[in-house]
């Protein structure tokens, strides 16, 4: 794989997506939602205005966990099940399928990141103007984590698109994946946890977090915001299990990286054997 075609494909994908109304619409909606949540989160502040940054961010976190996977899946599926004629011309060029996938993924990611970053920036400015810059680094780290989540679901959408090939089928599958990771997985994990007991239960619970990129980002964000204490003793146990909070974040980020790379790598492998 060489860099140059990846770059050119990424740039074209970005141009297409930025000119696409959807990127703008997503940016505006995301910006309004994030800002709104942060804003109303602050209005609802209690009588002494404590925990500003962490709580606002925790509310934003909730939104991020719902919206970003959905948007990434939708945009990825849309792009990767795009017009056949366009794909045929592209893949007939002297490029590898891995280069095409990487390029398109990066271009898409850049466009999603652009809209997300503007949303986060607006909210960030607002939060800082209200409660000062003391949580800024955590907020930046949180933004990076959210971008990571976007990439993971982009990667998953590529796999889905590769497997399903047809647009409608891919969308159905993507929607299922969204539902699964955002909701069903956790319900399942909670259910199984209740069936287990003692140390098996805890081990399962800790490990199950890594099986869902949404949980990975949720837990890592809360640790970064230094609000892992809201998990109470469970949080302490988790941190001890993972080896301290720096180590925990490292492990979680590694898990997120794996989640970002593996589906895409699998998609490349499948696509190599696929016909157009």
């Amino acid at each position: 794989m060489t860099f140059s075609p990846v770059f050119h494909i990424a740039r074209q994908e970005l141009t297409v997506n930025v000119r696409n109304k959807w990127t703008l619409i997503f940016a505006v909606i995301f910006g309004i939602l994030v800002t709104g949540i942060a804003y109303f989160g602050m209005i609802a502040e209690g009588f002494s205005g404590m925990q500003n940054f962490a709580r606002s961010s925790a509310s934003v976190l909730n939104l991020v966990l719902y919206i970003i996977p959905l948007v990434s899946l939708a945009m990825g599926t849309l792009s990767f099940t795009g017009d056949k004629g366009s794909a045929e011309l592209l893949f007939s060029q002297p490029v590898l399928s891995s280069e095409v996938i990487m390029g398109k993924a990066l271009g898409l990611f850049a466009s999603i990141a652009l809209s997300m970053a503007s949303g986060f920036m607006v909210a960030g400015i607002m939060i800082i103007s209200k409660s000062g810059p003391q949580g800024l680094t955590s907020y930046l780290a949180f933004t990076v984590l959210s971008l990571g989540l976007a990439f993971v679901f982009l990667s998953l959408s590529i796999l889905v698109a590769t497997l399903a090939r047809r647009k409608s089928k891919a969308f159905g599958f993507a929607l299922f994946l969204w539902f699964f990771f955002v909701l069903f997985y956790d319900i399942l994990a909670i259910g199984i946890t209740l069936l287990l007991s003692g140390s098996t239960m805890n081990l399962f619970l800790f490990l199950s977090l890594f099986g869902n990129p949404v949980d990975v980002v949720r837990v890592a964000s809360l640790i970064i915001f230094d609000t892992a204490t809201i998990f109470g003793p469970a949080g302490a146990a988790l941190l001890r299990f993972l080896g301290g909070s720096a180590m925990s974040v490292t492990l979680l980020v590694c898990a997120l990286l794996l989640w970002a790379i593996l589906p895409m790598a699998l998609a490349v492998k499948i696509m190599r054997r696929q016909d157009f």
């Binding site: 966990l65 319900i187 909670i190 949720r218």
Partner: peptide, 21 residues
């Protein structure tokens, strides 16, 4: 309520699943 039974479930706090419950 479930948290009372398995305190470590609190790790799922803020997850959409907990809200669904």
């Amino acid at each position: 309520y479930l948290e009372g039974k398995a305190p470590h479930l609190r790790l799922y706090l803020y997850s959409p699943a907990s809200q669904a419950f």
